[in-house]
Design a protein around this nucleic acid. Structure first.
Length: 637
RNA sequence: GGCGGCGUAGCCCAGUGGUUAGAGCAUCCGGCUCAUACCCGGAGUGUCGAGGGUUCGAAUCCCCCCGCCGCCA
């Protein structure tokens, strides 16, 4: 079996997963699943990048051990990927023990070879970007990338002799036009190499959270050097030579366009220096904007994929697993893989309705309905092969394969949708409702439709694994490989369960659907951006009627009054800042409104369990009371 | 500032010298009834960013200008 080793970049634990990072993992997963279905022995690695000064600083400021911090942060990524059905074979962490060993071994070897040498670094360093900067880089003395403060540093470091590899890299690029894709990235990197390469610092003195230089305990290996090597570790470089021999070199590194230079220049130079074969290809994809603006943590408009999936499952009234398939479909279909994209609710809903509900979902639904109406839900046997239909299918299949091999994921999906259109048209042309029940003509039409759906669904498995499982199980033909794509493999005589529409259409026009204006809806990034909250938000508040049993001024405080209230079954102490407007005496006996489930807080040494409601401006304050008598403890809604 | 890319239908994009410039979505009209107001068929609409040039012929090649983007400095 031919092997296929594919990787994502590893994700920086200081970040949280968002649509962009997750779209890389999804695209990689789609390719991995496709290769598996084609019969490749696939090894798929992803994971987290955990070493850096920034992380060390952050952990310290939060009062946690750095390792504890990254354990937690790494788990967030892993859980997200598990949820999104990312079918990785190894989730590597740069703090994994075997990785530490590999990095040290690698560093040693390059040092012995003379490609790593001690030198002196002098210049500016931006902690936030973790970049060394030159005088000319700075803008008003600040980091040109993040605008943050920079530090002047001067220290002994180890350097990697990158300059030595300029010519060999250039030659390699000229001989391997596919080494870096898309072509625009290839051209960029070739230009950079042509203009000359400088040796790069690969260690730092001033922080500890990282991998120590094996022969110099005062130095920590620079995070990029450390991170790139994950691709070797994941394949078993340290403790599984046999596995490593089998899978290395990686066939495909999927990365973001921002890290092209590390992967296109430093990484191959490192491998050349060590004497390892270079990866087959590096593919740099673009970024997803959100509703037209760049997604970034500092702008606060990061969409969390799992939150989004949950929200959409509510909107579309589908379960979470299906909602995940929809996300995977949208990200794969909306743009040509490699380009930048714009993640928009409007187009998301259009894709869902037009492609999934109207075309694919409705095809399944109408076919199943006819199968029940005309043949009792049982797959009939096939009398005559429809050669025209078969030829169409075969053509589309091979186009699909070609585009998938080229990583043209969206075009490959378009080919599948041409099959779906063909089948919808097939029904129109054959008019099954005008054919005699039990006739071979009708039976052939029904068989062909179900067979077409089966094949379509198998082709969609890399993108939508969950829907694939559902549909194929109905046909008793769950298949783990593309060799089952032959027309006629569908078994006759099985009874197919009738299921309700898989992707219910979202009604964008009528208000009665309850999702009024959903098409205009933007993806919410901040809660209550418009000043409105959802009913759900309101219902989180537990508001109660409370009767004041006693009230006393808090000593040494002008306005705090300590109040004991009855909530019917229980009593509570609340501290309220109403002493300027109410005397303790007049409070006793009043029935007021309190928030019961507000987290307790200590004021002047007294624990306040809840909060009372009052209307106030600077001059006046009035407690909220009730205008008819009702028992203390009654819920407000 | 240097190198490169892009600017085509309301929207997103395909098309790199040759008959009336294309697909999808959206719109409108017609049809069908198995189906999720769905599906099928049809209809469009474009100074192919502006100007100039080469050519029998240019969205396509060349020059220049405008706008946007990427990499580098």
């Amino acid at each position: 079996m031919e092997k296929f080793y594919i990787t994502t970049a590893i994700y920086y634990v200081n970040d949280i997963p968002h649509i962009g990072s997750v779209s890389e993992a999804i695209a990689t997963d789609v390719i991995a699943r496709y290769k598996r279905l084609k019969g490749f022995d696939v090894f798929f690695s992803t994971g987290t990048d955990e070493h850096s000064q920034k992380i060390e600083n952050r952990a310290i400021s939060e009062g946690v051990e750095p390792q504890k911090f990254v354990d937690k942060a790494s788990a967030v990524w892993k859980n997200t990927f598990d949820k999104l059905r990312i079918s990785y074979n190894r989730f590597i962490r740069t703090s994994d023990n075997d990785h530490v060993q590999v990095v040290q071994d690698f560093f040693n070897k390059l040092y012995e070879k003379g490609d790593i040498y001690p030198g002196k670094y002098e210049g500016w360093y931006c902690i936030r970007e973790e970049m060394f900067l030159k005088d000319s880089d700075l803008i008003d003395g600040k980091c040109p990338y993040c605008g943050g403060e920079v530090q002047k540093i001067q220290e002994e470091n180890y350097f990697f002799r990158l300059s030595k590899y300029r010519d060999v890299l250039l030659k390699y690029y000229e001989e391997h036009k596919d080494f870096l894709r898309p072509e625009s990235r290839y051209n960029e990197i070739v230009n950079v190499i042509k203009s000359g390469l400088q040796d790069v610092s690969v260690s730092r003195k001033s922080f500890k959270f990282g991998i120590t230089v094996p022969f110099d305990e005062t130095q920590t290996i620079y995070v990029w050097f450390d991170a790139l090597i994950n691709y070797l570790t994941a394949a078993g470089f340290y403790n599984d030579k046999e596995k490593f021999e089998k899978y290395w070199p990686a066939n495909l590194h999927i990365i973001g366009k921002d890290i092209t230079r590390f992967h296109g220049i430093i990484w191959p130079a490192m491998l050349l220096s060590y004497g390892l074969p270079l990866p087959g290809s590096i593919f740099a994809h673009g970024f997803w904007n959100l509703e037209g603006t760049r997604m970034s943590k500092s702008l606060g408009n990061v969409v969390h994929p799992v939150d989004f999936v949950n929200k959409f499952s509510e909107i579309a009234q589908i379960n979470e697993d299906l909602s995940i398939d929809v996300l995977r479909y949208y990200l794969s279909r909306e743009i040509n893989f490699g380009q930048d994209g714009d993640f928009k609710m409007e187009t998301y809903l259009k894709r869902y309705n037009a492609d999934l509900a109207n075309d694919y979902g409705n095809l399944i639904n109408r076919t199943l309905t006819m199968l029940y109406k005309y043949n009792d839900g049982t797959v009939p046997s096939l009398t005559h092969l429809d050669n025209e239909a078969i030829k169409f299918m075969e053509d589309k299949k091979s186009e699909y394969m070609r585009y998938m091999d080229e990583l043209n994921l969206s075009i490959a999906l378009e080919e599948v949708w041409q099959i779906i259109s063909y089948l919808n048209n097939y029904i129109q042309v054959k008019e099954p409702w005008n054919l005699n029940r039990g006739s071979s003509e009708l039976n052939d039409v029904l068989y062909n439709l179900i067979e077409g759906i089966r094949i379509t669904t198998i082709l969609l498995l890399p993108f939508m694994p969950f829907i694939g499982e559902i549909i194929l199980k109905l046909m008793d033909s769950y298949s783990g490989d593309f060799n089952k794509l032959t027309w006629g493999d569908l078994k006759s005589g099985i009874k197919i369960q009738k299921i309700p529409p898989i992707f219910p259409r979202i009604n964008l026009l009528t208000k009665s659907a309850g999702y009024r204006g959903v098409e205009k809806e933007k993806i919410e990034v901040k809660e209550s951006e418009e000043g409105n909250i959802k009913y759900n938000d309101f219902s989180k508040l537990d508001l109660r009627v409370a009767e004041i049993l006693s009230a006393n001024r808090v000593p040494d405080s002008e306005k705090l009054i300590k109040i004991n209230v009855s909530l019917g079954k229980e009593e509570r102490t609340i501290v309220a800042g109403i002493g300027k407007f109410y005397s303790p005496e007049e409070l006793v006996g009043k029935k007021i409104i309190i928030i019961k489930n507000l987290e307790p807080r200590e004021l002047m040494g007294i624990k306040s369990n809840g909060m009372l409601l009052a209307a106030s401006n600077n001059a006046e304050l009035s407690l909220i009371t009730i205008d008819r008598d009702i028992d203390a403890g009654t819920k407000i809604n």
